[in-house]
Every structure is written in structure tokens, then in C-alpha cells.
């Protein structure tokens, strides 16, 4: 029995696309604001997979992709902090984190 398993850049990119898609789906359909925040983290991680995979396969000696991924992680951490603060502030005013009830953009 010959298993011809192999792995290439495309595999990582497709995995990243799937993860990005799942995250995007969550962003678009979840009612809970915190859940949306979590899904954004998933999308950012999908991007990180891309960066690192391409860094390995295309520019292995430069580490540009890895450094970018570090910055992405930094920004994501900051984003989670701010996002949670905003959600808490909104919750304090509205007693809700349900995005369906937040239609202030309408008027």
C-alpha cells in the first residue's frame, strides 16, 4: 500500500482560505458581538498561516512573513482589548450585545 501523501504551499493556502471563510461566516452570521470578535481572530489567524507558509516556501531566509505575523498578532491583541472594552461600554448602555438590535446606522 503506497500512501502518496505530500504537502505543498497550496495546501497551506487552501487551509488558510477555509479558515478565513469559516471566520468570515461567523462574522456575518453571529448575533453575539463577542462571537464576532472571536471570528475576527480566526480570520487574522488564517492570514498568519498565509504569511508564514509563503515565508517558508518563497523567501525562507528573509523572515519577512514571520515578522509580519508578529505584527499581526500584536495588532490582534490590541484589537481584542479595545473591542471588548467597546462591547462592555455598549452593553452598559443598552444591556445587550445582540448585533441585531444595533441598527443606529439607519437613522
Amino acid at each position: 500500500m503506497q500512501l502518496t501523501l505530500s504537502v505543498s504551499l497550496t495546501h497551506y493556502l487552501v487551509l488558510s482560505a477555509i479558515l478565513f471563510g469559516i471566520g468570515l461566516f461567523g462574522v456575518l452570521v453571529k448575533k453575539n458581538a463577542i462571537s464576532v470578535l472571536i471570528c475576527i481572530e480566526l480570520m487574522l489567524n488564517a492570514v498568519n498561516i498565509n504569511f508564514i507558509a509563503i515565508s517558508k516556501y518563497v523567501t525562507p531566509g528573509d523572515f519577512i512573513g514571520q515578522i509580519f505575523a508578529i505584527f499581526v498578532i500584536t495588532v490582534a491583541a490590541a484589537e481584542v482589548g479595545i473591542g471588548l472594552a467597546i462591547i462592555i461600554a455598549i452593553y452598559r448602555n443598552r444591556l445587550s450585545v445582540n448585533l441585531d438590535e444595533f441598527d443606529w446606522l439607519k437613522w
Binding site: L13, V14, S16, A17, I18, F20, G21, I22, L24, F25, L28
Partner: peptide, 9 residues
């Protein structure tokens, strides 16, 4: 989302 995944892939 399916379209996004298919396109990216």
C-alpha cells in the same frame, strides 16, 4: 463564504 473559499483556493 463558499464563493470566497472557492475563489481563494
Amino acid at each position: 463564504v463558499a464563493l470566497v473559499i472557492v475563489l481563494c483556493g
